[in-house]
Amino acid sequence: MTSRIPRTIAIILAGSAMAVAGLTMQTLTRNRFVAPDTAGTLDAATLGLVLGAMYVPSAPIYLRMVIAVVFALAGTGLFLLLLQRLQFRDIVVVPLMGLMLGAVFNAASVFLAYREGLLQTLVTWISGDFSGTLRGRYELLYVVAALTILTYWFAERFTIAGIGRDFAVNLGLDHGRTVLIGMGLVASSSAVVVVVVGEIPLLGLVVPNIVTLALGDRLRRVLPVAAVAGAILLLLADIGSRTVRHPYEVPVGVVLGVVGGFAFLAIVLRSRGRVG
């Protein structure tokens, strides 16, 4: 029981954070395929973790969290910078570029981990997993809760920014700053999730797509729904991860990677069908 309560809280916070992160990124970049997984954010955070483990191995977890957040912010910033240089923001070129950026960060992580003999440890970090959720660690996720609430506070502005730069400036909004604030908030929260539970793939991509398809793009309305849906989906995935190979656990990241992969493909096929 003592491990169940923290675990449940951790799942709810992480699931909602990833969904909100994906939703916010999709709105601000005006691209439905952008999420922490496809903007280089998660891979940058992981690179931060690897470097932290190499150079300050005895550092307390909150310091490692800070390092991962800094890397996630830098990685996402680089993504935005590259995005600005893309003239025609084709719907798939943008996530493709983000994925490649992530691949570069990942290559650096693997390179370092290989040299240090940390490769298997790296694999463990990467796959999102709640089996090790215990007191003293999951509390960091309260930071995530704070960041998610702050994101909600800006919801209206993010929606306006997502309509277009001209529209936003016309309404007196500093578009560039709004995008930076939004991307910064959600990059930070997904980095904290990476530190505490690992990478949770595809949740940030799939949940917002389904929720906005049904309820529209006004963040003030859909953001809470996305948060709840993300939490529920992650809880379900967690139950699945515990029952597939009972009494062993399959990391929840794997369950999501496979199930979410199919769901994502289905969504893409659908959107293609409608556009083309």
Binding site: T159, G162, G164
Partner: peptide, 12 residues
Amino acid sequence: ILRQENNLAVRL
């Protein structure tokens, strides 16, 4: 001011 370059696929 209104220009043409707004996100037309926005679901509002």
